[in-house]
């Protein structure tokens, strides 16, 4: 099974946002999309996830998603998108309630998802009682509960402080090692991209075009090791060279609009 994005174009009114985006994501592959602000990264993710209709182009899953997948394409949102009146447990259950599951089966899926994200002790808490990092863990648990075939993550760490981000990055990596879910991950943070990606897709400033695709050939668990540092620094520089001028130009364009 793989995700195929073909010739996607998009515009908001007269403003072109995305130009001819094509990419594939293989099963259990992590593709990180980076680009300057306003380049259409989030728009692309909405289109991939079927929340926005593109002006042109198609998004499809080739091959059958796993049988146990209740929601083959599942989002994790930047602002967590938790229902503030529901407890952690019920926020996760929200993704399951409309499926034909027995009460016991649903409880088991919720229980598992909470255990896998280290939230079991917080099942009864309300979102307002949790830190940002814990809230995003609820977002991850909700996504895992439906066994996604493809996980779409829209800047999941950008609302968090630097330390929490570091902790969750490590958690994401561990979850990936275990779950092997194909993922499209949007960020503007180069370090995040290099920590998580199998491939990094670099978008230009608006209208977003694919500028380059860079593979990260270091196994994920080794990326925090000192041995990997020179190679990662080299990749970081390469990415930064690709993005720097785009980011500066995008900044100036935003100021003038």
């Amino acid at each position: 099974m793989r995700l195929v994005v073909e010739g996607v174009w998009h515009a908001f009114g007269a403003t072109a946002v995305l130009e001819d985006i094509s990419l594939t994501v293989d099963a259990s592959e992590v593709v990180v999309v980076i680009g300057p602000s306003g380049c259409g990264k989030s728009t692309l993710l909405s289109i991939v996830g079927g929340l926005l209709q593109p002006v042109a182009g198609t998004v499809a899953i080739e091959g059958a998603p796993p049988k146990e997948s209740l929601n083959p394409i599942t989002f994790v949102f930047q602002d967590f998108a938790l229902l503030p009146w529901r407890s952690v447990r019920d926020n996760v259950a929200f993704a399951l309630e409309h499926h034909a599951l027995s009460r016991a089966e649903r409880d088991r899926l919720v229980h598992d998802a909470l255990a896998r994200t280290g939230l079991s002790d917080f099942a009864g808490a309300l979102p307002k009682q949790l830190s940002g990092g814990m809230r995003q863990r609820v977002g991850i648990a909700r996504a895992l509960a439906v066994s996604p075939a493809v996980c779409l993550m829209d800047e999941p760490l950008s609302a968090l402080d630097a330390q929490t981000r570091e902790i969750l990055l490590e958690d994401f990596r561990l979850i990936w090692e275990r779950e092997r879910v194909a993922t499209v991950y949007i960020t503007h943070n180069l370090d995040e991209a290099l920590r998580l990606a199998d491939r990094v897709v670099v978008l230009s400033r608006r209208p977003g075009r694919i500028k380059d695709v860079i593979a990260v050939p270091i196994p994920r668990p080794e990326r925090t090791s000192e041995a990997a540092a020179p190679e990662l620094a080299r990749l970081h520089n390469r990415l930064w060279r690709l993005i720097r001028d785009e980011a500066i130009a995008a900044d100036r364009e935003l100021a003038l609009h």
């Binding site: 929340l51 394409i73 998108a81 929200f94 409309h98």
Partner: peptide, 21 residues
């Protein structure tokens, strides 16, 4: 609206989006 989009992303039916969100 992001809560509505979240519900839609999990394929929650319209009536349940109204009732639960």
């Amino acid at each position: 609206r992001n809560l509505v989009r979240m519900a839609q992303s999990f394929n929650v039916p319209f009536a349940q989006v109204v009732r639960k969100v």
